[in-house]
Design a protein around this nucleic acid. Structure first.
Lengths: 191, 191
DNA sequence: GCTATACTATGACGGCCGTTATAGCGAGGG
DNA sequence: CCCTCGCTATAACGGCCGTCATAGTATAGC
């Protein structure tokens, strides 16, 4: 259990740090220290190094969000949207606007190894896909036409991510709240 | 002239690098090298160091975008929106999805100096404000009510920024195009 | 008891970071 | 002519980075 807990703490710690500082500014040393684990252990648990750790951190955060989204979407698309935005609002307020979305953070930093896209970046793409897919399914269930549902789900995810970043820059939940209100109306009236 | 050109090249180079790699992963050394300027000159032109250079880079990019937005908005809000998204689409395609928005990049990285918000972060907040204000004015001019126009402008900016990031992660313009289509319909029909 | 296996502990490697200091240079004004 | 002043050039400072290697420890199976 101690092994599992140590590994999980590393992943959670990495997610929290990426959320705040971004991927490149998150060092393995600090993640380990913050998790109470020795540096050497990090490479034991994650032989793929920083990229593997970051990818698992992104997946961890993405799944946590996806579970909350699933629960809320059972009550309908509008409630799912409300919960999605409330989740991000909580992160912002709890951290005094110092933390945002780790998936977004990974998405806006070019992999510095010149070649193929990083595992972390692939995980980010899958995270966005997962959220979109869930929202689109809920929209179709409430009668939105097929292609429209997909586009609207993309709009919701994109707007939420952008609004979180804008709220961090402005140090105010205003952008997030405004965007949430606008989208709620749109989704409720079927637009 | 050479002084102005050298300084401007430093700013433009920094903006381009932040766009791709994010703020923390952009080093003054590389910006200088990429701009053909010596490292020492950077601190001559920007005594405030990296933070000042980053802030000016953000302002530079923000103003370039604002000018294009102003020109397009003279033809109406829908044309402005189309141009705004076309601008980001060009950046993505031209760089093979390696570059995004420097304002967003700065917004998602916590200032590592524990204290007050960075000059670069303040510049990012002002950039978002500027774009929003322009869009809101155009929406009001076409009859959108006061408060609705402000919220809808926030939605457009947030959605565009988020969609750029999603397109980078997915290495496809699909998210950006979907979001643009959805918003164009919304703005055209007056929602 | 003994050994294999999982994890810890420690330290080193080369390399890049932001920043500062100092010396050199070229052109314009006296 | 000289001298100031904007800019270049170069090197150094302490510090953190990702990664790897090696040695130690504890636990579980035989």
């Amino acid at each position: 259990m101690s092994d599992t807990s140590s590994r999980q703490q590393l992943v959670a710690g990495a997610a929290d740090m990426i959320r705040r500082r971004g991927l490149n500014a998150t060092s393995i040393r600090e993640v380990a220290k913050h998790s109470g684990a020795p540096l050497g252990s990090t490479y034991h648990h994650f032989p793929g190094g920083k990229d593997q750790l970051a990818a698992e951190a992104v997946r961890h955060a993405a799944e946590t969000t996806a579970r909350a989204l699933d629960a809320a979407l059972e009550t309908g698309a509008v409630e799912g949207l409300r919960t999605f935005f409330a989740l991000w609002r909580d992160v912002l307020v709890r951290t005094d606007f110092r933390a945002g979305c780790p998936v977004l953070a990974v998405s806006v930093e070019e992999p510095q190894s010149g070649g193929e896209p990083t595992a972390a970046l692939r995980a980010a793409a899958e995270a966005f896909d997962g959220w979109e897919h869930r929202l689109a399914t809920a929209l179709r269930a409430q009668g939105t036409p097929e292609d429209r549902a997909a586009r609207r789900a993309a709009l919701v995810v994109a707007a939420a991510e952008g609004a979180v970043a804008m709220s961090r820059a402005r140090r105010s939940t205003r952008p997030l709240d405004d965007v949430a209100a606008e989208l709620a109306e749109l989704v409720a009236t079927g637009g």
